[in-house]
Design a protein around this nucleic acid. Structure first.
Lengths: 117, 117
DNA sequence: AACAGTACGCACTTTTTGGTGCCTATGAAC
DNA sequence: GTTCATAGGCACCAAAAAGTGCGTACTGTT
């Protein structure tokens, strides 16, 4: 008896994955990993405004969801690279599409500034 | 001299729109508006776990970005309906695709539970 | 020998987000 | 005539997310 996943249901696990996967920073990090494996410091420079802490946390969460893989070369000074897994590459297509939509619809979205709460 | 929008740049306005549009609640509300115009109380029931306050706020933000339109019939007791604008319907396609991806990849995402911070 | 770069972990503070209860004004049902 | 439903607004509080600064252990550069 398998219920189909349904994000509108509070108890469905898909809800948590959606939140993880569609968070602001996750989207940006996945987008930044487009061009292949990257190191922490490179991603820091590429994703404007992200902090070290958030970057690490985001990468860790994405790795836990099998969207990125972490390779620690075990050297000192540390050398660690991150790359999209095949699952991550599949998701990247969604991300690209979403971001392209936003970037492409800027004129339509503009004009009504989002409220500051 | 128009720079193309680039979400990876901290100062680009597209960043703010991405955050608005890809927030957890926005995605769910847009998804819930799939079937046409809906009233507040209907959306409350449909989107499991959303509070009155967040629903109102989300709808207000989406309306400010021209993704949904708010129609107040001005009667008492109040009767207000929300519907996707054409822009919102265009975006809904992205949302559907994203949600379908998450729901369809649950097995792959499962297994590594996202960390609780 | 002093210093920057590397990829974090940890503790602390600030900011943002979300939850709760109470209020409105009216008509309709009981 | 009391109660309910309607679509919120508003104030207050709790919880979650994010920012900041410090430390680490070593290497290569100056």
């Amino acid at each position: 008896m398998e219920l189909p996943p349904n994000v509108l249901s509070q108890s469905c696990a898909s809800r948590r994955y959606l939140a993880l996967v569609a968070s602001k920073w996750s989207l940006l990090v996945i987008n930044a990993l487009d061009d292949g494996p990257a190191r922490n410091s490179f991603l820091m420079r590429k994703v404007g405004g992200i902090s070290q802490k958030i970057l690490t946390q985001t990468l860790r969460d994405l790795a836990a969801a099998s969207l990125v893989s972490r390779e620690d070369h075990g050297t000192l000074p540390p050398h660690v690279t991150y790359r999209l897994t095949p699952l991550g590459q599949s998701f990247r297509r969604e991300v690209r599409s979403l971001i392209a939509w936003v970037e492409g619809n800027m004129p339509a979205l503009r004009g009504a500034e989002p409220d500051q709460h």
